[in-house]
Design a binder for these strands. Structure first.
Lengths: 177, 177
DNA sequence: ATCGGTTACGATATTCGTAAGGATT
DNA sequence: AATCCTTACGAATATCGTAACCGAT
């Protein structure tokens, strides 16, 4: 009866918080086949890349890459994990894109044409103030003119919206985009 | 004609890499309603939480929370984004769980019973060596005995696998789990 | 001997915490 | 006045880069 013991090293570091950075490291190595080339692609030196990956592997208790003299190949576990990592990174990218798009809606330039005397109505300045408070990123341009001229400006796209008074002759369908 | 200009501040920092930490911050604030209580839950002080969120908002160009004297409420954009953040964090959590599970499969204790003389066959030691090389975290216990005794041990769960020679009398269905 | 990965350690950069300042209820 | 968020700045911490080392082809 022969018994063999293998002592597995345990992480000397405390548990780390896995971050998207680590997932980016994994996919880069999987994509480029070696730590060295992945490090180049990540604009960093290779030793820190090794450190981070090793630490992640130790923390999760799973070996993701098989290192050899000619590069790093995915283990069977690594194969599954890198696939998941790509999905997460893809969602994160979408998150950023969506956030910027949502933000873009809150900034820009709004050109408002107002018929003469409209600014005397209590509701209008209040509405503009409220809008400016809610969307501080939007530059608001106010322009006072008469109703027919404003309708023309609106049609030409020189203003984005016009506050006029009846009577005015403009079909709803000709609103500016 | 009156014109108002509002200059929108641009981030003085370079673009940051969004990390899972930022998403954790967002969901914590959304969950707790105030930066202060979220900071407590995150085991951190409240000012750095404000800093990180502000920086993320500036970088993405979107306001996620409406700050007021009595807490932080989600903006319409923030509502969408926090929902996405939760999805990403959920996947990240799954990733960690899966990784640990895959790692656990690569470690543990494998008890192998071998019939006498089997170790003389060239294939068996080679297979064991290969297995140990591939799964360094698994402790392998080898035990030599005779075929009937090994079948009994296997049935009792005293070994995980047995390498025996015919004839042996054991239905396949009685394999250990 | 070259290529690739790891270890060691000092430098750098980011984050974090404390203290003071505003704003709103 | 009390509560909550922000700004400012020094301290702690984590990451990063360079240099030296090991292993394999």
């Amino acid at each position: 009866m022969r018994i063999q013991y293998i002592f597995k090293p345990i992480s000397i570091y405390g548990d780390i918080d896995m971050e998207l950075r680590h997932l980016r490291f994994l996919t880069a190595i999987a994509d480029h086949g070696t730590f060295t080339r992945a490090a180049e692609a990540l604009h960093m030196a290779q030793p820190p890349l090794s450190q981070q990956v090793k630490r992640l592997e130790d923390d999760l208790g799973v070996r993701i890459f098989d290192r050899s003299g000619r590069g790093a190949a995915l283990t069977s576990a690594g194969d599954v994990l890198v696939e998941r990592a790509r999905a997460i990174l893809s969602l994160a990218k979408e998150f950023e894109t969506l956030a910027r798009a949502l933000g873009a809606g809150d900034q820009g330039h709004l050109r408002v044409g107002m018929a003469g005397g409209v600014s005397l109505l209590p509701l209008i300045p209040a509405a503009i103030s409220a809008f400016r408070r809610e969307k501080p990123g939007v530059t608001v341009t106010l322009e006072e003119s008469n109703t027919p001229a404003l309708c023309a400006s609106l049609r030409l796209g020189q203003v984005d919206m016009a506050i006029v008074r009846p009577p005015f002759s403009m079909p709803i369908s000709s609103c500016a985009p």
